[in-house]
Design a protein around this nucleic acid. Structure first.
Length: 482
RNA sequence: GUCCCCCUCGUCUAGCCCGGUCCAGGACACCUCCCUUUCACGGAGGUAACAAGGGUUCAAAUCCCUUGGGGGACGCCA
């Protein structure tokens, strides 16, 4: 079997989104699985929609995800260039070939005319396609008008057998020729439209598998017609189901958090995102036995096109979080600290110990920074927990007793964490309280809240003088909190 | 409107091709309990689905048809 070549062909008109990223992932996985090649091609034929910087950000996001390509605009390759805007001469040559093989004619219709045509057809509840106004203009007249008028090249589709697309996921799909209108291949300037450039590039760059979103399925019939006219064997088509948003609608740009860049900012890591994405529309089939956690390497080994779903899948933030957490658990404290370094000065020395206290809770790197709230002294006045817990005689007495015991203990060179634990227990005995009645006042006094990391390890990080200061503050607070 | 595609728990899915082992299995979320002097983590349970209706068959989630619902396409966007 020939070497598998798959490609990811984004247009540099925005950032890499989840849907795109999954398409890239599947193309990548299939190439890796088959020891083939994964190619990146930038489809920048529409200069108007080009967003400066987006090409660079696509590279960055793909690299961050570890979806590395074997050929591409930045690294070159044997069948380049890999940026459509640098391939206009290729399209011109192929357009000439196509003109010899089939009817390709100039269309002088204006945008306004075409809009009117479509509006009319729509109101008549008819099939919307090109009405064929310019189809019968003679070659001589066409030539003449081309000198002064703007035009596009259209490929004529005469009646004939239905066009067949063999799709790995959907099977054999047919479309009648008469619903396919004469479509545009390119502008007078030589700039092709997507449909044409894309088909040509896939053919010329010897792609064996075209893996892309289902939204391209209806384009595929036109592209097959181009392949047939040119005498190219069409690639194997793989149209992936779409991803829908949590509410069931489109996964659109308005859901800003769904771009890879934003997910990265939210503290998701590549392994988690990739794992989640792979399971969106595909399943290895035996997850009841194996579980659902897979590394990129495992995915590369297990992936297959046959098990890709037909129906669309809805994005589920919770599950993304869950899988991200699973992969976060694999990271050592060193790695975590490197990926999520302290944001406040002076924390470098204790940072690893600090994040160790919250890593169990954290589904994202960002959630590691919850520890910051405990590292800073609490503002008891604005804490609802302090107002309710640090009330009455017992908590006050316990804190006072605890503080004095703690001060003695640390003066005797006892480590802060040991001193705190023993002081709390001793204070409880003296005052005659235990359990939550005893520990909650101390927890709230030290952190301001009732829920948080374990107190004793936290004490070790905070150090004795900080604890003393917080306890004093809390005692002071109890006096005013009546 | 026309064409194409799709439809198993709330969500992701296994099973469907090759009907019986499925009064449908797993995971996320949710609920309960255990662990825990907090929250979480972890552990043990639980609620919850074959879109509907017709066929075919001894037997249908699995095969066929119809209806319904959803998505995509119909650009000098990709």
């Amino acid at each position: 079997m020939a070497l598998v070549r798959t490609r990811f062909a984004p247009s540099p008109s925005g950032f890499l989104h989840l849907g795109n990223a999954r398409t890239a992932l599947f193309a990548f996985l299939y190439a890796r699985k088959t020891n083939g090649r994964f190619i990146l091609r930038i489809e920048d034929t529409d200069q108007e929609r080009l967003v400066p910087g987006s090409e660079a950000s696509i590279y960055e996001d793909l690299k961050w995800l570890n979806l590395n390509w074997d050929e591409g605009p930045d690294i070159g390759g044997p069948l380049g260039p890999y940026r459509c805007s640098e391939r206009y001469d290729v399209y011109k040559v192929q357009l000439k070939r196509l003109q010899k093989a089939t009817r390709v004619y100039r269309c002088f219709c204006t945008t306004e005319q075409l809009d009117q045509d479509r509006a009319l057809l729509s109101s008549q509840k008819k099939l919307i396609k090109y009405v064929g106004r310019c189809l019968n203009i003679s070659d001589a007249e066409s030539e003449k008008r081309a000198a002064t008028e703007n035009f596009v090249w259209r490929m004529h589709i005469p009646p004939g057998d239905p066009v067949v697309v063999n799709d790995v996921i959907r099977g054999k799909v047919e479309m009648s020729r008469d619903v396919i209108g004469d479509f545009v291949l390119g502008r007078a300037s030589g700039v092709p439209v997507f449909l044409f450039a894309n088909a040509i590039d896939d053919a010329v760059q010897e792609m064996t598998h075209v893996i892309r979103g289902e939204d391209h399925l209806s384009n595929t019939f036109r592209q097959v017609l181009i392949y047939q006219a040119l005498g190219h064997e069409p690639p194997v088509f793989v149209h992936l189901p779409m991803i829908g948003s949590e509410g069931g609608g489109k996964l659109s740009k308005r859901e800003g958090s769904l771009s890879i860049g934003d997910l990265r900012k939210e503290g998701f890591i590549p392994a988690g995102i990739l794992n989640y994405l792979a399971l969106l529309g595909w399943s290895p089939g035996d997850t009841a036995q194996t579980g659902e956690k897979f590394s990129l390497k495992e995915l590369s080994e297990r992936f297959d096109l046959e098990r890709v779903h037909k129906g669309r899948a809805l994005f589920d933030y919770q599950k993304l979080r869950f899988l991200n957490q699973q992969h976060l658990n694999d990271l050592s404290l060193e790695e975590l600290a490197k990926l999520a370094p302290p944001r406040k000065p002076g924390l470098e020395g204790i940072w690893k110990d600090a994040i160790a206290l919250v890593r169990q809770d954290a589904a994202t790197l960002e959630e590691l920074y919850r520890i910051d709230a405990f590292l800073a002294a609490p503002d008891l006045k604005s804490s609802p927990s302090a107002t309710t817990i640090l009330k009455g005689e017992n908590p006050k007495k316990a804190l006072q007793e605890g503080l004095s015991l703690f001060e003695k203990a640390v003066a005797g060179n006892q480590p802060a964490e040991v001193a705190l634990k023993e002081s709390i227990q001793a204070a409880g005995k003296t005052v005659g309280i235990k359990g939550k009645d005893l520990f909650f006042p101390f927890r709230v006094a030290l952190t301001g809240v009732e829920a948080g990391p374990e107190l004793v390890p936290l004490a070790k990080i905070l150090g004795s003088s900080e604890i003393i200061s917080r306890l004093k503050n809390a005692i002071e607070f109890t006096a005013s909190n009546t």
